[in-house]
Nucleic acid binder design. Structure first.
Lengths: 143, 143
DNA sequence: CAAAATTACGGGTATATACCCGCATCATGA
DNA sequence: TCATGATGCGGGTATATACCCGTAATTTTG
């Protein structure tokens, strides 16, 4: 019985949780990763890709590709900003409706997952999310 | 301040931890994902892809692709098994040496990460890894 | 024993992610 | 004002992962 790799445990737990949220969100037609982006874009209103990347803590190019998928599904729209280098992102109507459909589903996934974990684990998990605080420029707000 | 998504927190924590382990393992020329596979293959001695997939809890095709990378780096060798449908995997000498180089590095990554988390979180995290127990056929052994 | 079901694998495709590089565009300072 | 440097973005490529499908081999069963 080799000692468990903490990193591997975390990765597996993340994969498990992702599958759980994805399954619950399925009726809305989006997955947890995309839900997260939509929610952040909704909050931000109208952001550049780089700014959003800072907010969500993703690489800019990663985010760009993810956004292209969302755009193809007509969930978001992008257009050049005042600064012609920027592309500015915002939700479409369809994106807003999708987000509204997804929100109670997310709520339910969140609650059932929290119940599965139990209160102790919950507290810990919230703390875990702050590991990244150093890396990320993003700060203060929670999600 | 929107409520944090537990799934996203977990995913971010996993990403952070992965970066940590990868950085520490870098001198050995492998990442934590590959280290994990090498270690399991070493334990198993000589397994088929499907069996190994069961052990590590990965999709067979995912594992197949990962193994191809390891094979290209001459860390493992594959050959057809007695059952001609199977491909059987084992470490090469280079793979074994790499694993030996990597082990103390992993140890160090594990210790520093554990220290970063603190004992409470540690206990929790070990429990988290068992979330998958249901999904996975894999059982009993730890890593 | 031959037909049918099962199993093992690879390939295609998709998601989610990162890094590096090049090309625009903007901002600055000589 | 205009060269130089910084910034924003996309593309190329790579890793890590999954699902589905087709093909080949084995096992089961009638």
């Amino acid at each position: 019985m080799t000692e468990r790799c903490l990193c591997t445990s975390l990765r597996q737990a993340a994969a498990f949780s992702t599958a759980h949220y994805d399954a619950v969100l399925a009726p809305a037609g989006i997955k947890i990763t995309m839900f997260r982006l939509l929610r952040r874009i909704d909050e931000a209103g109208c952001v550049s890709i780089s700014d959003l990347a800072g907010i969500v803590g993703l690489d800019r190019s990663t985010l760009g590709r993810n956004l292209r998928v969302l755009e193809k599904q007509d969930l978001i729209a992008t257009r050049p900003g005042q600064d012609q280098r920027e592309r500015v992102v915002e939700l479409t109507d369809h994106g807003r409706r999708t987000l509204e459909t997804a929100l109670p589903l997310w709520r339910s996934a969140q609650d059932s997952f929290a119940a599965l974990l139990g209160p102790d684990v919950l507290t810990i998990l919230e703390g875990l999310a702050d590991l990244n605080k150093n890396q990320e420029t993003y700060e203060g707000d929670r999600a």
